[in-house]
């Protein structure tokens, strides 16, 4: 056991910026937002703060948590994955189509397929040197169209409900199994990240890719891995959606892209990469879901939802973006 070496601070340590109030605040932003929102909703509707409505919130949030968690890895590496929602929709179609043949293995097959598609996007980004924004924007369009084509542009009903039944159960009667799975995903990915060199590599890549490369960190492999996990998460979220809707549909998850990105930035993960974590996105996803559930409670028509997401994303990035390191903001 070593004792920490406490030496005098560097002479100019005092002149170098300490974390500002804003930076300290953003560290707790998602949790603060969560508490404030809960309080506000309870004030607006005193009957809101019940076990059953909270259970409903986390059940609704589960697919969003998984989607956002996967995409967070890509964002941490300094990229963005815009294809998650379309890939998730494709996943619901694949699940509904494969279920009759594959039965219990369908979940694994779908997750493997979307993971492989994510990996392809990562490879295209890394080896063809195309910005992740473009690769996944293209991917979004392609996956959405593929889902439409193979499903004949309509929902596919799932008759065999046994395969996804377990996801609709409740742990201890209150905790939806889907949410437990979402928590597990976050915990497992975080654990792997935390206790292997992956964390260092991901953050170094996100903060400064050139420095990471010159430190001979496996930048390319880390990025491909991030896209793979993001894809796989989209597949898992798809299974969750199917378990709730008893069908797969080529546009089922399309409206989850904005909430997922909102969850990531509201969580305080820097859109420029490096800074952030999956836990933050979990909190962010809960905030976003609460807003979604809460809007009707305070009397705002749900048509305003998308306006809200758009505003949240812009506002959250405005609050958290460290502009001092960006020469040019594109």
């Amino acid at each position: 056991m070593s004792t920490p070496v406490v030496t005098k601070p560097a002479p100019d340590a005092a002149t170098v910026a300490r974390p500002t109030v804003g930076q300290r605040l953003t560290a707790f932003m998602p949790v603060i937002a969560l508490v404030v929102l809960l309080a506000a909703l309870t004030v607006a509707d005193p009957s809101f703060l019940t076990q059953s409505s909270l259970t409903a919130v986390v059940r609704t949030a589960a697919p969003l948590v998984v989607l956002a968690a996967g995409a967070t890895l890509v964002v941490l590496c300094g990229g963005i994955d815009l294809s998650i929602a379309a890939l998730c929709s494709l996943g619901t179609v694949l699940f509904a189509m494969w279920l009759p043949d594959l039965g219990g293995l369908t979940l694994l097959a779908v997750v493997a397929a979307t993971g492989a598609i994510g990996a392809l996007q990562g490879l295209a980004h890394v080896f063809l040197r195309i910005p992740s924004f473009i690769v996944t924007l293209g991917g979004m369009s392609i996956f959405g169209a593929v889902a439409l084509v193979i499903s004949d542009a309509g929902p596919i009903r799932v008759v065999d409900r046994e395969a996804t039944h377990w996801l609709t159960l409740y742990l201890a009667g209150v905790l939806p199994m889907a949410f437990v799975v979402a928590l597990l995903v976050v915990a497992v990915v975080w654990t792997v990240q935390r206790f292997t060199p992956l964390d260092s590599w991901i953050r170094a890549t996100g903060y400064s890719e050139s420095a990471a490369r010159l430190a001979s960190a496996p930048v390319d492999r880390v990025k491909v891995a991030a896209f793979t996990v993001s894809g796989a998460c989209a597949g898992l979220a798809a299974v969750m959606l199917v378990s709730r809707n008893f069908s797969g549909s080529p546009t089922m998850a399309d409206n989850l892209l904005l909430p997922a990105v909102a969850a990531i930035v509201v969580g305080g993960t820097a859109i420029t990469g490096g800074h952030g974590s999956l836990w933050r996105s979990l909190a962010g996803a809960l905030v976003v879901t609460l807003l979604r559930v809460g809007l009707p409670i305070v009397g705002v028509p749900s048509a305003y939802e998308q306006i809200l997401y758009g505003a949240i994303i812009v506002a959250a990035v405005a609050l958290t973006l460290d502009r001092s390191k960006l020469l040019i903001i594109k």
């Binding site: 206790f195 260092s200 903060y207 400064s208 010159l214």
Partner: peptide, 28 residues
């Protein structure tokens, strides 16, 4: 911009390259 990763700690910067020096097997 190329030598160090500014926001990361002294320790993580120092072990960024030779990860094996702080790991046992795959674990940090």
């Amino acid at each position: 911009t190329e030598g160090m990763v500014g926001p990361m700690s002294v320790a993580d910067n120092m072990t960024l390259t030779k990860q094996e020096a702080r790991c046992s097997g795959p674990l940090v």
